[in-house]
């Protein structure tokens, strides 16, 4: 299930996104530039409303940028596609499909035979620790289990990049920690590029190779922090001096931007 390091190069070039509603224009993202290397884990960290989800939606192809472009492995993003699967915050599984039906969805769209897609879906369900839950419906699962199905459902498509929009934001603290460790374990197996949106500093630093700290709206990169903590990482890493130093650096910036977000957008 390894990526081989060949795919997953994301180039976000000078991206600008603005929305117009009833004569008002809201600038969500301004002149945002970021490159990822294949198989890299990058977090977008910022105060709520800073445009980080909008940015992720542009990579997914859900929103069209007003300036600049997103290029994935040399192709300009124009529409949503299975090469850029998204894990949402919550309630995005198809309630009428079983767990395995949800995971098989992408393969079914590609016309993979029933036998083959069941086999592949089982592999990915095993990977996220959900063997035995194939026939359950999403409504019967806990929030953490639902998110694991969401991850398997994206990874079964072997995407160039997995986009994650605060996927653990709705979970309790203990479950969130377990899910973070699980995600790192899964990522070690599949090595796809991950862009992970969060407002949780610990989460961003614990998971990522690099953390893009974003300004208040319109979102720009304020700081790009390289996290050189050794992998594989365990939960205990957040108590180390290196982690604390990074956290102190990021915390100041995030707090300033949160205050900025409250006082209104910059000119």
């Amino acid at each position: 299930m390894t990526n081989g390091g060949a795919t997953g190069r994301i180039e976000i070039n000078d991206l600008g996104i603005a929305f117009s509603r009833n004569g008002w224009t809201v600038e969500a993202v301004r002149r945002f530039t970021l490159m990822t290397t294949p198989g890299e884990f990058v977090a977008l960290l910022g105060p709520s409303g800073c445009g980080k989800t909008t940015l992720l939606n542009a990579v997914a192809g859900f929103v069209t940028p007003t300036a600049g472009q997103v290029v994935v492995d040399g192709e300009v993003v124009a529409a949503p596609g299975a090469d850029r699967g998204m894990v949402f915050q919550h309630h995005s599984l198809f309630p009428w499909k079983t767990v395995i039906g949800n995971v098989e969805f992408g393969l079914k769209m590609r016309g993979v035979s029933k036998v083959e897609r069941t086999a592949q879906a089982r592999d990915y369900l095993n990977l996220v620790g959900l063997a035995g839950f194939e026939r359950a419906y999403p409504g019967e699962l806990s929030g953490g289990m639902q998110q694991r199905v969401g991850i398997a459902r994206v990874l079964v498509n072997r995407p160039r990049v997995m986009l994650m929009d605060e996927p653990f934001g709705a979970l309790d603290a203990q479950t969130r920690l377990t899910m973070q460790e699980l995600l790192l374990g899964v990522w070690r197996e599949v090595r796809t590029t991950i862009i992970f949106v969060t407002h949780d500093i610990d989460e961003a630093l614990f998971l990522s190779d690099r953390v893009a700290v974003m300004t208040a709206r319109p979102g720009q990169i304020r700081d790009l922090v390289t996290v050189k903590l050794e992998r594989p990482r365990a939960a205990a890493v957040i108590a180390t001096p290196e982690f604390m130093a990074l956290k102190a650096r990021v915390l100041v910036q995030v707090r300033e931007e949160s205050a900025q977000a409250l006082s209104g957008p910059r000119p």
Binding site: P80, A82, V154
Partner: peptide
């Protein structure tokens, strides 16, 4: 129907016909 389910389907490779069949009708 939740727009997020439609987005999820498109980001898993569903086209217009598949969205109608797999999301709109069961939803």
């Amino acid at each position: 129907i939740d727009r997020q389910l439609v987005r999820a389907a498109t980001s898993l490779g569903a086209g217009r016909a598949a969205i109608f069949r797999e999301v709109v009708i069961p939803g």
